[in-house]
Design a protein around this nucleic acid. Structure first.
Length: 942
RNA sequence: GCCCGGGUGGUGGAACUGGUAGACACGCGAGACUUAAAAUUUCGUGACCGAAAGGUCGUGCGGGUUCAAUUCCCGCCCCGGGCACCA
């Protein structure tokens, strides 16, 4: 046997495969179903790193497995080759971005080929090729014709270091997603895609997709749908009306003031009416200076009242003040809110800071209604003394209940305050307390412990000052005789109430009081005129209708800003007439090529504006005074449809013919990075839906299954980056141990379809190399023998396990199963040719070069990659003997083997016969015998 | 704060539907081969007790359900990701 010379083998077969066009994928193959396996195509940054290997070589295992199962599998590759790095490298090193990009594509193509994947290179797609971007432009124009691409003047996010605008999705924690640079606001006339029109469909269609829950959740959150109402507040002595969006129209009666975003147009409009303009103006200036990030992190509420302007609450008809505050964002909803401090955390905090009125209009309902309940009202107090934080709490050792002092309101009481003062006097013997502010109420249903009765009551809470109270004798009723009273810190008190076996309502109120929060949940309306006593859900509709509002929906999602003030991108195929109106570049002039005569040093102005060629081209074609659009497209436009182009990459008359789409789309498995969840993945879904509406694509969704792959970290456990110097270059490892080993090691490291993080560990790779050497060495053991029953069974089991695991992208456990088989085969003196061939076949997707070589050595003249996946005998696996564990009281005391489906009594007898089991059963009596078929017996003894 | 993941030996990770926790691999230790080292190979390797047989403990922490819990339930802690003054 020759030793395993990976470099000779890998070179030999890569050349042969290319010559034979082994991985050329036809659009259809006789008797085979099509499968489309997609991985996110790379940006040609220069060198391939180990992460690329992980992304491209490992899913190849799956593609090869599907092929062996008899499918016609498309596993394409291309380059997402427009984008900033080319331009930045060009600026830094004085290179041509086109040359830089295409040189990198050449280098990376060679590196990608060294993986030995089943990529069909004849279908390669390069987004910066005019033959590709011609169709990007054509698609843009289709969307322009339907007004899904439109231009508008708007405040945009500007990255000062990238010198371009960015879409919302490209801002992470208030910084540029690409460079981490600061984001400024600018008002610019820019191109957008009307993605918000598709918000609902992007949301709803997620339900049908076989995608991981976390990706669906993240997209749902990003779209951020909220149901509510649009309400209008009239402004006193003015024609203006303030539109607000609220998710809580049921709390309208509690709207005691309004807040506008400082940027709201009314603020400037009312300049002459506002009495404290200087103050307002100063606040507006301060807000402009504050970064978005600061506004988010600021906890303390700030704001200024617009004095001299009042709004009218449409429900109560009361005049309410209008404030401006930076907690209201200009970019969400209408940039104005109705403030309901009793039922919104932010309004609550704001009202407390500025002493604005808080009106409770919803009460919490505690417990569920019980039959034949006594109906009463009760009042309780948070009793404190000045200078102490402690709260007076009563404990009843018989019922094990902590209670606040207070009680039922009697008919003879003048009001709640009097009731409370009286109860405190009687129960705890404090005379002369001052009942202070009302806090809140709840509606409670409960059943007191040790009593056969039900209660329903309104429970109100007041602050009580006992500083000047005198201690006197208590006048307790029989029920109250056991009460102990104690002073507890607020936190202790809350904890005690949490332990109460029954919630009387005071606990919920006390907790809210101690934590200084308001009630933001659903409940029952109060203090709401005719609408009092309704469930909040019902009141939402009723109150909205009553004030002439409208139930509406708001989204967090913003339209997709696609203009970029950079050079190396797809030109937007739009020209402007002398009046400045936008016109599409007619199809016959596509591709609308990217000019070469451009100084692309970023200045903030689009580089294409400096191209004379583009200017002249435009005037020549359209006439004097016509000007070209000079912005280029966001590269996420290029990547929103590339998977459609793979189907027919060189088609000159169609972007992607529908008959081919019908053969391949939607993509069966799409694997990529988790960072694209709310970028590429969302954009391309939108784009696809827009094309679907135009009748250009055949499926509503582009990808039926999506998986997020894990991340390969540097050896130091940190994310690989050139600046950290922890980037692993795969080439040297491929040269040293071979492509098959590198690929298999990456597959072995952990489950592929989970968002894990794997530090690159050189040690581990040796184990895989050793394994492949042992597989190689086993060829010497092949001879004309009949394998033992055990070996034959193991082969069947392994074929089954490997297939199942690969189908589930659990390559790690699939490899482990082949290792178990190899370990067993090595212990044999000889291995049958049939068994060895089966082993080589199931390893073919993992180690395509080595297995191809072995296949040839075994005497085959055709490629192993044209072989069928080995079959296995299910019957035989099912009949294999099973190991039964024997437990005594749940502790395993031994095992034995038995035939599957053995008789219960026989199994029990066999179990009892085990020495160690027998010794544990001695002197005790068996209470129960639990038999789990084919698995386990448990003797429960006493 | 809200919404998702996750926490298992020295390490990466395994464990069907609740049924022998730690498969497989790395690393480590001891032995063989070798003048030696590497490579290869044999054995061992969760912790503790024990010569062994075997026993006790053990899947982030605390409770619970169950004959039986990494798996289910309740309450926490920590890590990763998403969203976030979103009205």
């Amino acid at each position: 046997m020759k030793s395993y010379d990976h470099s000779a083998i890998e070179k030999k077969w890569q050349d042969k495969w290319e010559k034979d066009e082994l991985y050329h994928t036809p659009d259809a193959a006789e008797g085979k179903e099509n499968r489309y396996v997609l991985v996110e195509f790379p940006y040609p940054s220069g060198d391939l790193h180990i992460g690329h290997w992980y992304a491209f070589a490992v899913p190849d295992i799956y593609a090869r497995y599907l092929t062996m199962l008899g499918h016609n599998v498309l596993y394409p590759i291309g380059f997402d080759s427009f984008g900033l790095p080319a331009e930045n490298a060009a600026i830094k090193r004085g290179l041509d971005p086109r040359k830089w990009t295409y040189d990198n594509i050449d280098t990376m193509s060679e590196q990608l080929k060294s993986m030995g994947n089943t990529f069909d290179w004849s279908r390669k797609v390069v987004t910066s090729d005019p033959e590709y971007y011609k169709w990007t432009q054509w698609l843009f124009l289709q969307l322009f014709a339907r007004e899904i691409a439109y231009k508008k003047l708007c405040t945009v996010n500007w990255c000062d270091s990238c010198k371009t605008v960015l879409a919302n999705e490209q801002i992470v924690n208030g910084e540029c997603e690409r460079c981490g640079g600061a984001i400024a606001k600018k008002v610019l006339d820019q191109w957008y895609f009307w993605i918000t029109k598709y918000a609902d469909r992007l949301l709803e269609d997620l339900d049908e997709l076989d995608w991981p829950q976390e990706i669906k959740d993240a997209q749902r959150e990003w779209i951020g749908k909220s149901n509510g109402a649009a309400l209008t507040f009239a402004v006193k002595d003015a024609d203006d009306a303030i539109e607000v969006f609220t998710t809580r129209p049921d709390t309208l009666y509690g709207a005691t003031y309004m807040v506008l975003a400082p940027e709201h147009p009314y603020v400037a409009k009312w300049k002459d009416r506002i009495l404290n303009w200087d103050e307002v103006d100063a606040y507006m200036q301060a807000t402009t200076r504050k970064k978005e990030l600061d506004r988010k992190e600021a906890k303390e509420k700030t704001g200024v009242e617009l004095k001299g302007v009042m709004a009218i609450n449409p429900a109560t008809k009361e005049e309410i003040p209008i404030w401006i505050a930076d907690y209201v964002l200009a970019t969400y909803g209408t940039g104005a809110v109705m403030a309901v401090p009793a039922h919104d955390e932010r309004d609550f905090a704001f009202a407390q800071t500025f002493g604005l009125p808080i009106r409770e209009v919803v009460r919490e309902v505690v417990g569920t209604p019980l039959p034949d309940a006594h109906n009463t009202d009760a009042v309780f107090g948070v009793v404190r003394k000045k200078g102490s934080k402690k709260i007076l709490v009563q404990y009843n050792p018989l019922t094990k209940l902590y209670r606040l002092p207070g009680g039922t309101i009697e008919k003879s009481d003048a009001d709640e305050r009097e009731t409370l003062a009286r109860e405190i006097h009687e129960e705890v013997g404090l005379e002369g307390v001052t009942v202070g502010d009302y806090v809140a109420q709840v509606y409670a249903h409960f059943s007191p412990p040790q009593k056969d009765e039900n209660w329903t009551r309104t429970v109100s809470l007041y602050e009580v000052d006992a500083t000047d109270a005198k201690e006197v004798a208590t006048q307790r009723t029989k029920d109250e005789e056991q009460l102990e009273h104690m002073w507890l810190t607020p936190d202790e008190a809350v904890r005690k109430f949490d332990q109460n076996p029954v919630e009387y309502g005071e606990g919920a109120l006390l907790k809210r009081y101690v934590q200084n929060t308001c009630f933001t949940g659903a409940g029952e309306t109060i203090n709401s005129g005719d609408f009092s006593g309704q469930k909040t859900e019902e009141a939402k509709t009723a109150i909205t209708e009553h004030v002439g509002g409208e139930l509406t929906v708001q989204y967090r999602l913003r339209d997709w800003l696609l203009s970029r003030q950079r050079y190396w991108g797809c030109p937007i195929p739009i020209v402007y007439d002398p009046e400045g109106k936008a016109h599409p570049v007619p199809d016959e002039h596509l591709p609308w090529t990217l000019p070469d005569d451009v100084d692309f040093t970023p200045t903030g102005e689009a580089p294409l504006a400096k191209s004379n060629e583009l200017k002249e081209r435009t005037e020549k074609l359209f006439g004097k005074g016509w000007t070209p659009e000079v912005d280029t497209m966001d590269t996420f436009v290029d990547s929103s449809w590339y998977f459609l182009r793979y189907l027919d990459p060189h088609n000159d008359t169609e972007f992607s013919p529908k008959d081919k789409q019908e053969k391949w789309m939607p993509v069966d498995r799409y694997s990529g990075g988790a960072e694209h969840t709310t970028m590429h993945l969302l954009y391309s879904r939108f784009f696809h839906k827009a094309l679907f509406d135009l009748g250009l694509v055949t499926s509503k969704e582009p990808y039926s299954t999506r998986m997020s792959r894990g991340l390969i970290l540097g050896p130091d456990g940190a994310k690989m980056s050139k600046s950290k110097g922890n980037v692993i270059n795969p080439d040297e490892h491929v040269a040293r141990v071979g492509a098959d080993t590198v690929k298999m090691y990456l597959a072995f490291i952990g489950p592929f379809n989970e968002v894990g993080q794997y530090p690159w560990d050189l040690g581990g790779i040796a184990g895989i190399r050793r394994f492949l050497e042992r597989v190689w060495g086993l060829q010497d053991a092949v001879s004309d023998v009949l394998d033992s029953d055990e070996i034959q069974l193991l082969v069947h089991q392994t074929v089954q396990k490997v297939g199942d695991d690969v189908a589930a992208f659990k390559f790690n456990t699939a490899i482990s199963a082949t290792m178990i088989l190899v370990n067993a085969l090595e212990k044999e003196d000889a291995v049958s040719k049939q068994t060895y061939e089966t082993l080589v076949c199931i390893l073919a997707p993992f180690a395509p070069h080595q297995t191809e070589e072995l296949w040839q050595r075994l005497g085959h003249e055709t490629s192993i990659h044209l072989e069928d996946w080995p079959s296995y005998d299910e019957q035989r696996i099912a009949q294999a003997s099973v190991t039964i564990a024997v437990q005594v009281n749940g502790k395993t005391r031994g095992t034995f083997t038995a035939a599957p489906d053995s008789d219960k009594e026989e199994l029990i007898a066999a179990a009892k016969a085990l020495d160690n089991v027998a010794s544990h059963l001695e002197g005790v009596s068996i209470k129960r015998e639990i038999v789990v078929p084919d698995r386990l017996i448990n003797f429960v003894v006493i």
